[in-house]
């Protein structure tokens, strides 16, 4: 493999990390509060707002059931508005983020719903406000599950980011399509796949380790 190719793979890897990192970050910034809201706003819950819960639920479901490729195309005007262009790495971050938000919202919701209801009851009995319950009980208790959920999100985003390559997004997917497929350079295709596998493995291992560290429910062995 030529040094030129290696340089391209390195820079595409960085592009991918950049897209996934930004999408993961903004996705979490918006998806986390949404997930918390979804988990706590049904009738009789901490922030009971059943109608808003339903509405947001419907939007989240709609976004999640839209095939990613169609989402990318459908939101081109929004992408242009935010990124100034619809082509390239920065532009690809927009649909990735939009796809990440409902995904994160749902996995966070599931993680928070796992928290034993007795803990909410106890916190209320000690005079905690709904916000305090979220901060001091729900989030810390759900942390291991939240970590696993975000790991899952990042892994999915790595897959999606390869897909945005097909529509001019940049990153490893883009490299694989342009060189590996269109110019028929199988060694580039193979390398791209290997790098993606390594990234997924790395992210998963990191997430698992972190989640295990955070999980105090199992007895520590000394």
């Amino acid at each position: 493999m030529s040094p030129e190719l290696i340089r391209m793979i390195a820079s595409s890897t960085l592009d991918t990390l950049y897209m996934v990192g930004l999408a993961g970050l903004f996705g979490t910034l918006i998806g986390l509060p949404l997930g918390i809201f979804l988990a706590t706003s049904q009738a009789g819950e901490l922030f009971a707002a059943p109608i808003a819960n339903r509405l947001i639920g419907v939007v989240v479901n709609a976004t999640r059931s839209t095939p990613f490729i169609i989402l990318v195309v459908a939101i081109v005007p929004l992408t242009r508005l935010i990124a100034g262009t619809s082509i390239g790495t920065a532009a690809a971050t927009v649909p990735l983020t939009i796809a990440a938000i409902p995904f994160i919202a749902r996995v966070i919701e599931a993680a928070i719903r796992e928290v034993d209801h007795g803990l909410i009851e106890a916190a209320r009995a000690f005079g905690a406000s709904p916000l305090q319950i979220v901060r001091k009980v729900l989030l810390p208790e759900a942390m291991p599950a939240v970590t696993m959920a975000l790991t899952l999100t990042i892994v999915s985003l790595l897959g999606y980011s390869a897909m945005v390559g097909a529509v001019g997004g940049g990153g490893l997917g883009d490299l694989g399509i342009r060189y590996g497929y269109q110019r028929f350079m199988p060694e580039v295709m193979l390398t791209v796949v290997l790098v993606l596998i390594a990234l997924v493995q790395g992210v998963q291992t990191l997430g698992d380790t972190l989640a295990r560290k955070l999980d105090k429910r199992r007895i520590r062995r000394h």
């Binding site: 034993d116 007795g118 803990l119 009851e121 106890a122 009980v137 810390p140 208790e141 942390m143 955070l214 105090k216 429910r217």
Partner: peptide, 9 residues
């Protein structure tokens, strides 16, 4: 509480 309801974290 019967089931203690302690925070595992």
């Amino acid at each position: 509480f019967q089931h203690f309801n302690l925070l595992s974290s």
